[in-house]
Amino acid sequence: MPRGPSFDERIMDLGAFVAPPGREPWARAMRAEFEAIGGPRTGWALGCLGAAAGWRLRVDGVYLLMFALTAGLAWRVLFLPFFWAVHLNLVPKDLQGPAFQYGRFVVPAVVCLAFAAVHPRYWTLVGLGFPVAFVGLGVIATAHEFHSSIWDVHPFNATLEVGTGAQMGYCLLGALIGRTLGSARAARSA
């Protein structure tokens, strides 16, 4: 029965995927050494992935950082109408919950979807970087409250963690759908 790629091989594949085009020979060089290792290879594979990620960040880091900050800021702005609509009771009571959740989860997921559709290669970075930027900006905006509440985290009061996790999940899902759409579009035009 044919064997699928091992965990180590998947890490190496990811490293080759992440490496920028200019570093492709070096990614192949690391892969060739990986193939030559007789014993455990996970450490080598993880190091290669780290090196590839570093090369990618050097090439696209500023661009991705600017995207994450801009998108995070845009998300905050897009979220405000939903927040105020609920806060000022402009939305019927039974729709307030869905409106709030729509602003918090669906809008960012759609933004991730759109970006990943244009840049399918960056879907994981977008799906993770975007919510991190959003949460980061939120922490900065509410630094005084955050500072006093950050020490108050315990297992029975995990609202912040659950909400953040859900945001990341929505963003990753949006980015995944966007990547699928973007890849299909690229395949059609090829």
Binding site: R23, W26, A29, M30, E33, A36, I37, G43, W44, A45, L46, G47, C48, L49, G50, A51, G54, W55
Partner: peptide, 21 residues
């Protein structure tokens, strides 16, 4: 080879290849 250099220097792949480049 990269593996030989890594073994001789004690460097991990994540440090070795950026250095080689």
């Amino acid at each position: 080879y990269g593996l030989e250099i890594a073994a001789a220097t004690g460097l991990k792949s994540g440090s070795l290849y950026p250095l080689l480049i």
